[in-house]
Amino acid sequence: MKEAMEKPSSQVKAKVVARDFRLYYGDFMALKGLNAAFPDRSITAIIGPSGCGKSTFLRSINRMNDLIKGTRVEGEILYEGKNVYDPSVDLTWLRSRIGMVFQRPVAFPLSIYDNVACAPRVQGITKKSELDEIVEWSLRSVGLWDEVKDDLKKSALGLSLGNQQKLCIARAISTNPEVILLDEPASALDPIATLKLEDLMWTLREKYCLVIVTHNMQQAARASDYTVFMLGGEIVEVGPTRQVFTNPKDPRTERYITGKLG
């Protein structure tokens, strides 16, 4: 199985690599020694039943689990060859390189402009012309610019949920990251908005390493290059999505995919 896990990395350059990564909540081991590689310029889907640790794994990559008291990690998650849990890593830098999009669109009760601009501002960019440029570029990248360019001062909460989620992606890429983590990004969206989001993911794939957690099997099958199947805090199977879905190696993967597990 180890081969299969490292297969993606041998084909394309891996942006993020987990090596024997363990995460504990107090005494409870939630992630039990994960090995996986997330290749650049491709979409990797993490699937598995509720509570299998897929979100926890995703949130370990940009160290969001640090916010939860009593978590402890062992092993490594390498970004650009460097362990993100190394004490010398600056969290602001790390999170500007690894963007994140959440389940529900989290548009702040600010204007559309400020919703995007707050991310570069956090990085210390204050020059108006520079911010203008970043906002326009980010909104263009998610295909929202033409729709909102005359309403930049209006509240972001007036946008449809689908557009709010696009706005969140625009915000996530405004700091010019290399990796985008998406935690069930379509779970609050209707089917049409979901398909549009998947289209956007395919566009972003040209430039970024995308990792998406989803409980929607069709979505994983439709919108990913590689699939990681997790169960009970462990990775059961990793491989090209087509192979995982049509010819799974592990019987547990097959049972999950055919709906007999979880």
Binding site: M64, F102, R104, V106, F108, V122, A172, T175
Partner: peptide, 15 residues
Amino acid sequence: IYKETAYALGASRWQ
């Protein structure tokens, strides 16, 4: 979730 999102953008607690 607002706070979490801000942290995910690299913001410090004060920011």
